[in-house]
Write a protein that binds this DNA or RNA. Structure first.
Lengths: 355, 355
DNA sequence: GTCATTTTTGTTAACGTGCACATTCCTCGG
DNA sequence: CCGAGGAATGTGCACGTTAACAAAAATGAC
């Protein structure tokens, strides 16, 4: 007499999370209609829509995007791979990207590699399994397998921050090489003769390729102007910090006490240069001029305020987001886009006006 | 004679992304065996495993976690909601969390709310549709619907950073109230009499609830010691910054030129206080002592270095990650865990040693 | 050599949704 | 009052994987 325990019966236990089917039953419509209401496809009669929405609210139904993704073949994920989040500029990229993508309800999948290529490869593998619709990463260097995986993924690839000489596909950023040249030019035009620079070592397992590009540009500009590059110092491990700058300027001062101006590969390092100099009684900018890169908040706050090469990373993120939206909506030309957001020197007080 | 065009035929177009089925055919095994190889379930004969791995490599197969999630009912996502990423401490939490979760191959789903409750609610809805297995968010305040959604999700909820008086479930953090009390106690014990504080306004649409807690603690400690609280200033909009500190100290100096010590709700603001004071010829710490909160890098770098209340956010993230792993592996007690990671004053030179 | 185990592999049926198409219902011109 | 055409809703199946169970093959104790 008692009915055989059917599967549908056991499913009826309300402990289960409600599905679109439960909503459709309660509202007395088909699953498809519920799906339409959820996605706002407005081919639904207002009263039907209201009934469905009530059912959704009553049941506390939350759509399952994994199931939706599987069916529609669109995940709504955008992958973002950064070297670290503990860097205000990279954080700003993430911020700008989010802003641009928020309206279209894309979800950012953020990972960071701690500047390790091996980790990048590992992360990438995991990331691709989530089927992102586009992938954003910092340019410069990737492992062989990483590059292959990227291309095989067959989705838009956008390299950001660094503008690589050979972009994989699209790129939004600035030229680190130009940063170096610009900084050198700035110091040269101010009339300095004994010009130095500090960066991390370009040997070892963790290499700051972006910083190294800046150094290359700096050295090239010095050479092109017929100036010596013997005060361009590579020292210590990436990522550079306050302590790195302090240690580096100590070395440089020993090598050439009459050094006039220094470019630091990052503001963080530049601040260390300034502070250590002051500690030794070398006043900035009277006795030593310093220019950094990145325009970190810290540079605005120290005394004297730091002259620096500035890139708008937030805008960089936003433009990347817009590019992605264009690419995915399909109305953009599919030819690789290379967008240079440019850079500029922000003159504060840490560089003396010789001229 | 010609076979009817079966569906399987059209699928055979190699343009399609390979699935586990393609791998299984090429390797001459069942899909299940491939699945086992992928997930490293080691009930597979080494030679079979090798054959499968070769097929995977040859096809460039990448598993689809959305399909896997649907089937296994485990997404491997951990949701993380922060007010912003543009804050070194929150970034450190994300960093610590990632480190702890990396080994178990969980994937962090990071969003930020820009300190807006409405945005938090919106984000949360999107997040829950991704079926995270746990959700980490900054404590303090949530909207009514947000709280309801959180509870209905039926997954571990961990509030971090702030230790709420009424945690939703688990919490890992420190007491902002204690920060305020500790700062006040520190200044009182140094022997200062005219003690002030600067924070953002607690009125308006964007309220820094955490900062307000610090202020409450600070005021309570002053009151408990029988001291005046008329120099506790709430001014301007959250989030506070360098400029906020500068503007605030200007107001306080007008109110009471003989003010001896100031607690700033954040190091960023504290630095502004220091700089603006110095600009006005008020030396720190001789004429004015300053203590901040957060131990941001900037505080280590300014002159004089900033005394501050420090919390180890990276460790906080790591311990949160460990808690999650315990909770999800099921061998932890399921009773709500409240973990206080503590705090400490880092004495530098911005507070004068009266005693 | 037999049979009970253990190890390895396979089969079937979900998981929850959206696409493509089909159906029903309504409106309106003639 | 009929039928064309559009608006609103419904049906069946596929998306790619894994859990649960079943079967086959290998191993070993006696």
């Amino acid at each position: 007499m008692s009915p055989a325990p059917k599967k549908s019966a056991s499913r009826a236990l309300s402990a289960q999370r409600p599905t679109i089917r439960d909503v459709s039953r309660l509202a007395g419509v088909s699953r498809m209609t519920v799906s339409r209401v959820i996605r706002d496809l407005d081919l639904v009669l207002p009263e039907t829509r209201a009934r469905v929405n009530k059912a959704i609210a009553d049941l506390g139904y939350v759509p399952d995007r994994a199931a939706g993704s599987l069916s529609s073949r669109r995940t709504g994920f955008i992958a973002l791979m950064l070297p670290t989040l503990t860097n205000a500029n990279f954080a700003a990229v993430a911020h700008g990207l989010t802003e641009a993508l928020r309206a279209d309800n894309y979800h950012l999948l953020i990972t960071y590699t701690d500047y390790s290529l091996a980790e990048e490869e590992r992360q990438l593998k995991n990331l691709l399994a989530r089927r992102p619709e586009a992938i954003v990463l910092t340019g410069a260097a990737h492992s062989r397998t990483a590059s292959r995986m990227l291309l095989a993924a067959n989705i838009p690839i956008i390299e950001v921050a660094d503008l690589p000489r050979q972009p994989i596909e699209h790129a939004v950023g600035f030229s680190n090489y130009q940063v170096g040249r610009t900084a050198a030019r700035y110091l040269i035009e101010k009339g300095f003769k004994r010009i130095g620079a500090v960066a991390s070592s370009n040997e070892g397992d963790v290499i700051d390729h972006r910083g190294e590009e800046r150094m290359r540009g700096f050295e090239d500009e010095l050479r092109n102007t017929g100036m010596a590059t013997n005060l361009v110092l590579r020292h210590g491990k990436a990522p550079v910090s306050y302590d790195h700058g302090a240690a580096s300027i100590a070395i440089l001062l020993e090598r050439e006490p009459r050094i006039e101006a220094v470019f630091a590969v990052s503001d963080l390092s530049a601040v260390g240069v300034v502070m250590e100099s002051q500690r030794r009684g070398i006043t900035v900018p009277q006795a030593l001029s310093v220019i950094g890169f990145g325009d970190f908040e810290i540079g605005r706050v120290i005394n004297p305020p730091l002259t620096t090469v500035h890139v708008d990373f937030r805008e960089l993120g936003q433009r990347t987001g817009q590019l992605i939206l264009n690419l995915l909506s399909g109305d953009a030309s599919q030819t690789p886009q290379i967008i240079d957001v440019g850079l500029k020197v922000i003159a504060r007080d840490s560089v003396k006006g010789l001229r």
